[in-house]
Design a protein around this nucleic acid. Structure first.
Lengths: 135, 135
DNA sequence: GTCGTTGCAAAGCGTTTGCAGCCTA
DNA sequence: TAGGCTGCAAACGCTTTGCAACGAC
């Protein structure tokens, strides 16, 4: 039987509250402010458990450690802001992907990762944004 | 001054010979068959050195350890075969990516990773392919 | 009271670094 | 022969695992 400990509830709550993919260290820091003494191993164990329950998913970006988010609706892609390092969901999809496939290849999945500046950062053109991904 | 040791020449040669992104462990195994006693640290150091010279590039895939390939021509994407785990280059690009961008966001780069079955694996439909990425 | 869960510390794993000896130029 | 390069082992950072104590049900 799965037990609703305050650690597990807090980890899930942090992901619900911030509504975008967070790294393990961000989750640890944010959850520790609610549960003093929370250990990193507990974060890893609960993220994996929540993933198996289907409540959260792991988001892998090329060359970065994984981030975690509450399971999103349907098919989507991601936009990574190069200024503030936040990751956003894009609920749309290129339509002409099949076209670029070489002959004989069978397409089963596709990932699209966009990089640039998010709305907030593009407004403050030359201002340097903090790199913090948790706010 | 950069010295052309047999280790460095072999590591570069392996990448030239196989013409697709190889993992560090694949490179080590392949190069060790030409240079007995080759160490993993030497592979890492030389890959980084070759990268700084512009001879090779690191290819990062989501959730996988990096692979390395000789510096390819221009803008391209990748296709990862889910049967044989080989990675292939796609020298074409979706054209309607700008369309899916939310308002206010500025697009600077994009990565597309396709997954499915490569030409060779799709021909052998129900046959199981070896997972080896070096052959 | 049971036994799933926790925090700690140790172990794993891929990658990097320090160092003495080697070998290219 | 100088000093860049190598192999080895230790160090690193992130993640997982073993274990005794804890606490949800």
């Amino acid at each position: 039987m799965v037990r609703a400990t305050k650690q597990r509830k807090t980890i899930h709550h942090v992901l619900v509250k911030y509504r975008r993919p967070l790294s393990v260290s961000e989750i640890l820091k944010l959850a520790q402010s609610e549960v003093a003494g929370l250990g990193i191993a507990t974060v890893y164990r609960n993220l994996k458990a929540l993933q198996e329950e289907g409540q959260v998913i792991q988001v892998d970006l090329p060359g970065q450690s994984p981030r975690w988010e509450v399971t999103p609706g349907g098919h989507h892609h991601h936009f990574l802001c190069r200024k503030c390092d936040k990751l956003f969901e894009i609920h749309d999809c290129p339509r002409d992907i099949q076209r670029i496939l070489p002959k004989g290849y069978i397409l089963e999945e596709h990932d699209v990762l966009l990089r640039g500046q998010c709305d907030a950062c593009s407004r403050t053109a030359n201002t340097r944004q903090p790199k913090a991904t948790a706010e």
